[in-house]
Structures are given as structure tokens and as C-alpha cells.
Design a binder for these strands. Sequence first.
DNA 1: CGCTTTTGACCCGCGC
DNA 2: GCGCGGGTCAAAAGCG
Length: 172
Amino acid sequence: MSFKMENLEGPFPSPTPLSLNLINSLGYGERDNGILGLTAAAAAGVPGHENKGLGGTTTESEVKIGKNKKGENKKTRKSRYAFQTRSQVDILDDGYRWRKYGQKAVKNNKFPRSYYRCTHQGCNVRKQVQRLTKDEGIVETTYEGMHSHPIQKPNDNFENILSQMQIYTSSI
DNA sequence: CGCTTTTGACCCGCGC
DNA sequence: GCGCGGGTCAAAAGCG
């Protein structure tokens, strides 16, 4: 498996190109080449990635809970990590169930950004998917939080990857 | 029939 | 204080 996180020193320090057979293993038929070039370096100094939204906030950030009804005001530090994926389809099914809860147009980008949330009970993992204007063949997916439940789809490959991601992010 | 998507409104932080 | 950009809610529509 080629997703070696332990080689990295910091949160995505270098745009190491990783080969990952994501979509192929999921049975999506729409992609042209099938193989994705996965670049785990959305914000780690990648030139041309100066987008304000996802660009600067990639690996880790404090997310303040703005609107909550309970009035709890703790800032939750969530590790958030993004990666770019070469794909023709926005929906990269990684094996979890996602429910879309929002979609917003982004400035400097003609494509909207979609917000998803894990539908598992008690699992507050969110992800957002944004396609880059620059390269419309690149989809940038940002994960926020970690799943604390088993995956629901037969997808050994990505389960492994996510496991490593979780180990990695929990040590931040 | 239950769940997901859609979509506009609302909310919040921040800069001016 | 206001406007803007970004994130979330929630009602209604849509779909299997």
C-alpha cells in the first residue's frame, strides 16, 4: 500500500505524489484514467494554491463552534486535513455514509463547494468537497474529525488509509 | 415510507 | 455598524 504517512514529518510537509487506486476500487465507471494522483499537500506550500478558504486552513485549525444551541463555547480543536484528488467525479465514496448538508459557491471559483456529514450516530465527521477552478480535473476533499466506527463498505484499501490517517492525526 | 438532496435563509466572524 | 465571505439549518422536494 502506497500511502505511507510515516514518511511524513509534519502535516503534509511536501507534496509527495501518491498513487492511489481509489475510484477504481470502488467501482466508479466515470473516470477517464481510473487512477488518481493523490496529492496530500493542499496547503503545505503548494504553489498556486492560494485559495483563502481551503488553502490556508488545511492540516490543523481551531474550529470555533459558531452556532450552537446549547451555548457551549468551547473551541474545539479539530484536526483537519485535505488532499487533492484527480477525478472527474466529485463524489469520492470512501466507504462511509455521507449526508450532504450544504452547498455554497466559493469566490474565485466557479464551482460550488459541498458539505457532507457522516450519518453515523455520534460521528461528527465532516468533509467538504471542492473542485478547483484552475484544474477542473482536481477535486479537493477536506476531512474534519475522525471516524470512531467501522467502515460500512467493503473497501479495504481505503480503510487502511483512513486508519493510518487517524493514527496520524491523533498524535497531533 | 424513510432517508437524502436541494436550496434559501440565517448566523457568525472579520475587515473596513 | 455594515457588508461580505463562509458555514450551517431546516423545510420541502426527490428518490429508491
